[in-house]
Structure formats: structure tokens, C-alpha cells
Design a protein around this nucleic acid. Sequence first.
RNA 1: GCGCCUGUAGCUCAGUUGGAUAGAGCAACGGACUUCUAAUCCGUAGGUCGCAGGUUCGAAUCCUGCCAGGCGUGCCA
Length: 554
Amino acid sequence: MKAKLSALVLAAAEKAHTEGQLPATPSADILVEEPKSESHGDYATNFALVSAKQQKMAPRKIAEILQSHIGDGGGAIRKTEIAGPGFLNFFLQTAAWYPTLARIHAEDHAYGASGVGKGERVQIEFVSSNPTGPLHVGHGRGAAVGDATANIMAFCGFDVQREYYINDSGRQIHTLGRSVYLRLLASTGKSVDFPEECYQGEYIRDLAAQVLAQEGEHLLDQPEADAILTCARFAARAIIAGIRRDLERFGVHFDCWFSEQGLYDEGKVDRSLADLERQGKIYRRDGAKWFRTSDYGDEKDRVVVRSNGQTTYFASDIAYHQDKYARGFQRVIDVWGADHHGYIPRMTAAVEACGQRRDQFQVILVQLVNLLRGGEPVAMSTRAGEFETLTDVIDEVGSDAARFIFLTRHYESPLDFDLELAKQKTNDNPVYYVQYVHARIASMVRRAADNGFTRVGWDAALATHLVAPEEIRLIKLMGRYPEVVEKSALSMEPHRITFFLMELAAAFHAYYNRHRVLGDDPDLSRARLLLVTAIQMVIRNGLTLLGVSAPDRM
RNA sequence: GCGCCUGUAGCUCAGUUGGAUAGAGCAACGGACUUCUAAUCCGUAGGUCGCAGGUUCGAAUCCUGCCAGGCGUGCCA
């Protein structure tokens, strides 16, 4: 409808220009938008205001000329009105809204989908938590944001791959192995010092018991270095398996689990460093090797090989990102915790130095989660082992509530996650508010079937019974959904869909309380069933993109 | 010091990418269950959009400078 009006406005302006009423050729980017207030019509254009300078004419005068050429849009426009400084407002015929409803019924599960992504190959890498302990709530937010973004982009025609990068190499894996080994020694009765830098959580003791059960007593007779390596490999594998389980529970599936160690094993890190060194992008200083990231906008150069010969994480990250582009992704999106933001300039620099455009690398920086219980902060420290794990939170509040709450805020703002609030099945908790719409309508459909209203398909004649202002408002609102999804995909902001769903839910609940769907008039009842089942489809489609279920009963 | 993020109603947050009179939820107050699910709805009240300039027909939105909070700033990961 919006596009149709834009075309109409442009045609009118061109006609006026041809007839000599407008001096300049009208530019093509005509903006038609929905005014906030209904008194300003269903749609409005600011063409007259925007083009006043170009046309050298008063905005209201331009609007008048435009108005005289607009016509009735093939019967869709009831009236036009010039208002304020020069807006041209459109008031549509009631019947102009029915095609929107027809479209929802026709497209059903696909309503809201589009092809704006044009098949662009995009990779979204998210969570990528180090395999040294279970996922906590912060990772949950990254998982919800990454997964929903991937869903939404895929729905909009992007070719999306989800990836998890496993940091299974380097010092913290060694620390993990050492932590398990020391707990293992302690469990055999030896008195050992357990250093502060080791992982303190209870799960380390469990892993120690498991590795002992699998490897047997001879593990203790091995040289310490070998035993630690065994423990490290065992623990990392077990923790990754646990992470994978937690994510499955959370409804998150990855297409690819990518191993950092694999990059080393295949020589990709060495090759990448050698290439860059040959190109003069890496140099030696103070016994270390430095990458010239400052040539690409970073504030200073960064070490890739330390003077002790060990590579830094940055080195493998460079090789890793090169590998992503080598696999054919046109755009790479990394979802990181906000505490990594200092890493963005150097990673962007590295991507550019390796021959990609800056805009082919994007970072979604997810702000921190403050976990609360009844308003009181819950301590979260991995080292002290007293953190709330994601799986505990899912146990307590459920996957749906957790995912929805993670997506009720722009990812750039910090989030207070209150466990008590998330559990409440009241209107404090927006997830149930939205799901309730779906369940209520499902219940109505069941009731309708009992009363002999077999589920009716789309029927244009029947739809003309929908004339109440609330009904038109609902259709209009649903008509906006495809645009919301598209903007959500292009800006990578899933919360837009969450807020849209809450708005649609509010409009539905208000309608429900005011109008009876299943009443004495069979045609009216059938017409209203057409309306509410469309709402049900839109709610379900939106919840699905967010990774939240749409229940038939609550 | 420098960099990134944030600042909107008592609280938690939206704000259609520069539009008209800035919106929700919670909390407060007053109402609606003999009803298709009250996990709901209706109403009242609540604002110097951090502050000061600038850009223009028009600014919560863009630019500059301040103020406040969070995070970062390693040959750590």
C-alpha cells in the first residue's frame, strides 16, 4: 500500500511538471509514511516539504498542486487533505485494507518473508564461549540475539550460516587441564595447593571423577605434563558436549562447530602469518612479531607472535577470519560481549589488511546482563565458581521466557534479568502476554469448530463485514509486519520484532474485550474468525523468528 | 588521558533512521469476570527527551562542546 502511494505521488508530481505547474523534475525518493496520529490519515507524504527548496515554491502550494493530480488511487483513497506546514494526508477506503488480510491468509507461514537479502552469503558467529566452563546467562543473551538475527536474516533472503568457534587451544585450555588434574590428585587423598588462577567451580571435581573413571588409575602414574594434557582434552570435549546440550535446550543449533586447534593442525595460522610477513604487513621488534594494524585505523600495532615464540589469540583470529572469507562468505558477523569492544579496531584492521572491505565484517556487541533475584544482584564470577548457569536459568524460568526477555531490549543496552520477574505469569512478563494471544485464538478456533463453524478459508465477500475501527486498525498494524521484519534484518536488531509483537498483542487483547468474535451473526463470526486467525499467523511467525514457541493452550 | 556504549515519566524501556500534540509496561489511583481463556481490558495521573550551542521549513533523532554512569585501553584470553 505504501509503495503504491509512493508511485501515485511520483506520478502526480511528474504530471504536474509536464503541465508546467512544477518547475523542477521531481526526484524519485518520495517518502510516504504512517503518521503517529490517526487524525493525520492512514498515510502521509512530506513530498511538498522536502522539495520546496528544489521547486522554489511554498510547501502548501506544492501540496495543493499534488493533491489536484492524485485522483482516488483506483478507488482506494477516500479523501486527501493538506495539513500542517505542507503534509499531504491520505485517508483510505475501508475496503482498501482487505487485500492485506487476504495476503496474510495466502502467505500464512511465509507472511513477512522477503528477498531483500538477495542470497548474500552471510556467516553469523556467536556464543563461542571458551570451553572452560558451562554457559552462563550472559552467553544466553548472545545466543538469543545471534540465533534470532540469523532466523530473521534467513527469512529475508540471506543465505545464513551459524557458527560456533571453539577456543580449544592455548593457555586457558592448559589451565583447565591443570585444574582437573589437581582436583584429581586431591581426590586420591594427596594434599595439593589449588591456585587461584585455576577454575574453582564444582564441575571441575565432576570432570576429575569422570576422567579417572575413563582413563583409570594409570593416569596418575604418567608424567604430570602428559596427565594434564589428557585431562585438558577430556575436559574440553566434555564441556563442549555440555554447552551443545544447553544450547539445544535453548533452541539454538549451529551449522558448524569450528576448532581453533584445527587451524593450527592444518598449518593455517603459520601460512597466514607467513603471507602477511611476505607482504610486509608483519615486522619484528623486541623479539616479537607485530602486525601493522595501525595502517588500517587501529591505534597501534599488535603482537601476533610473542618473544617467547608463542602465537597470540589475535594470530589465530586472523587466520580464522581469513578462512571464513575463503569459505565464500561475503559478510561475516561476530556477536561479542561488550567487554571485547576494544578488540574491534584491530580485527577490522586485520580483515581489511587481508583484502576484504571494512563493511564485510560486522560486530554485534551485546551488552552485559545483570542477573537479579527479586531485585537483588546475583553474584557471577566464573573463577569463584558461583555463577548462574544458563541451564539453571532455563530450569527456573523456561527457554521461552528467557529468550523473549533477552530480546526485549536493544542489544546495545545493558539488561537487568530478574529471575523472579521472569517466572511470574503475570502481565509483568511480556512473553506470556504475547503467547496468550496465540492460545486465546487457538481456543476460539476450537470453540468455533464445536459450534459448527468449520475453519473458513479466505473469502473476500465475508471480509466486508469487518468495519469496526479496531478491526481496521488491526489489519493496518499487521500490514506493517513485513516492513518490521525487513528493517529488523537489515539493521540486525531482533528487538524490533519483539516490540511489534507486544503492540499487536495489546491491540488484539483490546479488541477481544470489546468485540465478540463468535456471536449470533454467522457471517460476522466467520469474518471475525478470518481476522483473528490472521493475527494468530502473524504472532506465530514473529515468535518463531525469535525462537519462542506459540502454544495452543496456556 | 584516549576510545566505545548509554543518558527519554518515580522504575524498566520503545521511538517507524529528520516529521505534525514524544509513546508502552510496571508502580499509584478508580473501574470491568453469570462472558469466545481476567496470564485480559477500560480510565486517571505522570515529561526542561542529561546540559549548552549549531545545522533547517521541522531535532529525542544529525554536528560541536561539556556533565554523569558503564566498559575497554597487555608480548592476557
